[in-house]
Design a protein around this nucleic acid. Sequence first.
DNA 1: ATAGCAATCCTTGTATACAATATGATTGAC
DNA 2: GTCAATCATATTGTATACAAGGATTGCTAT
Lengths: 215, 215
Amino acid sequence: MDVRLADQIASTLEQLVFSGEFQDGERLDELKLAEQFHVSRTPIREALQVLVTSGMAEQIPRRGVFIRQPGPVELMEMFETMAELEAACGRLAATRMTDQDLASLGDANDRCQQAIQNADHDQYYSENETFHQIIYRGAANSYLEKQALQLQNRLKAYRRIQLRFRGRLKQSMDEHSQILQHLQDGEAERAADVLRSHVAVQGEKFHQLIASINR
Amino acid sequence: MDVRLADQIASTLEQLVFSGEFQDGERLDELKLAEQFHVSRTPIREALQVLVTSGMAEQIPRRGVFIRQPGPVELMEMFETMAELEAACGRLAATRMTDQDLASLGDANDRCQQAIQNADHDQYYSENETFHQIIYRGAANSYLEKQALQLQNRLKAYRRIQLRFRGRLKQSMDEHSQILQHLQDGEAERAADVLRSHVAVQGEKFHQLIASINR
DNA sequence: ATAGCAATCCTTGTATACAATATGATTGAC
DNA sequence: GTCAATCATATTGTATACAAGGATTGCTAT
């Protein structure tokens, strides 16, 4: 419950951008937005500043702000960066997670398994997110955690796509189990390696999909 | 040369925050800033939004924006994250840097050596920055590069501190040479490991210094 | 007909005016 | 004397008015 209209509008716009409501390069007209949100241009402009600063839009002075949807190349780069961030979290988490953290991680993993058995994709994605977030937290580095959470959120919409690939779900679960095992054993490098490829493969699957569409 | 006052002000404020002009928790008074910059509150507010979004300040609705200087704990976390980002860059760069990139890196390293011989600390820090930036670029992932550059910039002011430690400069140079060698050999994991500890040690030195001051 | 120029309109950027809320100070009651 | 409540003031949040820079359209000249 934000108090400032600008904040509410920023969140809403962010959601709209994420959900692909805007085309890449589309100009965000201050007047139109002001009408849509039934406010003046002032809060709109402040919300746009937020989008620009967070990299979701580009501002050209005296011209306006234009939304920037990441293209295939940038998405691949983001997935690769995510993979490295997750690997880093795993490395650190392996020596820092408490027994309680590991128990939570095990629970989250079980709930992932369960979701698959129920063939409940929504639940799977939700629990999968939780699984990874527990690892971010386990790194015991709130700055790194924040970076990881931000990028995870940014990639959320695109991560679902890998679902389409046959057998990916089972493979994903196997990797989860490996990750859990390595973290329990305090095997930092192994945990990092599995996490890295676990995430990187998502980018590759995404790439395959893009390529197959453009064929 | 920004066209918008808000942009100029945002950059200036950013510099002021970096240079420690503001205390942690200090409120940024819109009216005072407006007077100082000889503008109205509007561009000031838009500049403040930028600071808040980039995490340099916190906004409490109806109360104002308060600057957030990272404390020792957060700084350590940032150094640790930087270490992981640099390791990631090194890992990727090891297999992606061109001969030309490697030549540039060697040149930068030579200029670092030279700066040390000249006992020119300013030049050393400038060239050291370049050395690392060439590796970021070498990762051939512009998103990751951007993240690394951002954090490097954020930590700039604090990195200088390690200089105070006897023998650190020579050690640093030795590490640089190792990194260069591993990158030339395409030894991804070794390059990553050396880079990680090369940066992580800065955080540790920083920690030592803080501890010694508070003693 | 097309290219170049000019004028008008549209949009962004900035200033100011107005509204609403939080803070703190003063007054009154217990 | 202290605590609480209310009122005044200061500051943020929003709206509107004004300024200035592009973009588009139409006209003219070649």
